[in-house]
């Protein structure tokens, strides 16, 4: 069962100030695969992501994390307000053995990849739109050439076209370098486009109520497949139940 380099969590439980947030979480993501964590808000998705990434030590359970270069895109962009877009991307590389010039050059080329050109690279966060900030945060994460990439609603502030482009970018990058990816989302289509497997969290404390596998290779998933798959998944009883409070408006 144990493969080399898999991200594995066993028996994870966690609480904040006495309130249980997560209970009995079992997960494993083989190296180079993409896991999506789905679920309505308030079910501990972000907490689970932080535990998987090692930013939070769980009250119970154990995480196996055989990675050296983790990178995150947080729900808030969390850019340094006193650094330009370029400086913020370079900041993610601060721990690397690179000269300042190399760092800035890498930052610049990564910003171009997320569609931010020379003129935007020199702007401070307060001069950027919400979607631009999100893309700077994504560039910062990709610039470190991570072996574990953790994405928390990374594509949510972007319009449809742009969010598809960024998803594509992450997918290609992950495939090329065998990056293990965990993404938190409430958008089913995002999960269906990118993930190899998905778990659905629900309830308080959050538990895994459903596990899905999306077999077709991500590069072969066209719009028709995504649509059909969403319909298939949305029809599953446990998933409908999990989302019911948010669906029945």
């Amino acid at each position: 069962m144990s493969q080399e380099g898999a991200l594995a969590a066993t028996g994870i439980g966690h609480g904040f100030a006495g309130a249980r947030v997560l209970d009995d979480i079992e997960l494993r993501v083989p190296k180079g695969e993409v896991l999506a964590i789905l679920g309505p808000s308030g079910t501990g998705k972000t907490t689970l992501l932080h535990i998987l990434g090692g930013l939070l030590v769980p009250d119970a359970g154990h995480v196996e994390r055989p990675f050296e270069r983790p990178a995150y895109v947080f729900q808030d962009p969390l850019l340094l307000p006193w650094r330009t877009a370029r400086g913020n991307v370079a900041f993610g590389l601060a721990g690397k053995r690179l000269t300042r010039g190399d760092r800035l050059a890498r930052a610049r080329s990564m910003l171009v990849k997320v569609g931010l050109g020379h003129s935007e690279a020199g702007l401070y966060p307060h001069q950027l739109s919400g979607g631009m900030k999100k893309r700077v945060a994504l560039a910062r994460a990709l610039a470190v050439e991570p072996d574990l990439l953790l994405l928390d609603e990374a594509f949510s502030a972007l319009d449809v076209g742009l969010s598809r482009e960024m998803q594509q970018l992450v997918r290609l990058d992950a495939q090329e370098r065998e990056v293990t990816v965990v993404l938190v989302t409430h958008d089913l289509s995002e999960a269906v486009r990118l993930a190899d497997q998905a778990v659905v969290l629900s309830g308080r404390p959050g538990r895994i109520v459903a596990r899905l596998a999306i077999e077709r290779p991500a590069r072969l998933r066209d719009d028709a497949f995504v649509e059909a798959e969403i319909r298939r998944i949305a029809a599953i009883e446990t998933i409908r139940d999990a989302f019911r409070p948010t669906l029945s408006i």
């Binding site: 990434g53 930013l55 990178a71 995150y72 947080f74 969390l78 900041f91 993610g92 721990g95 470190v144």
Partner: peptide
Amino acid sequence: GLRTMARAFRV
């Protein structure tokens, strides 16, 4: 949040 971010990137 910024502190967490810096920690996450192992700065």
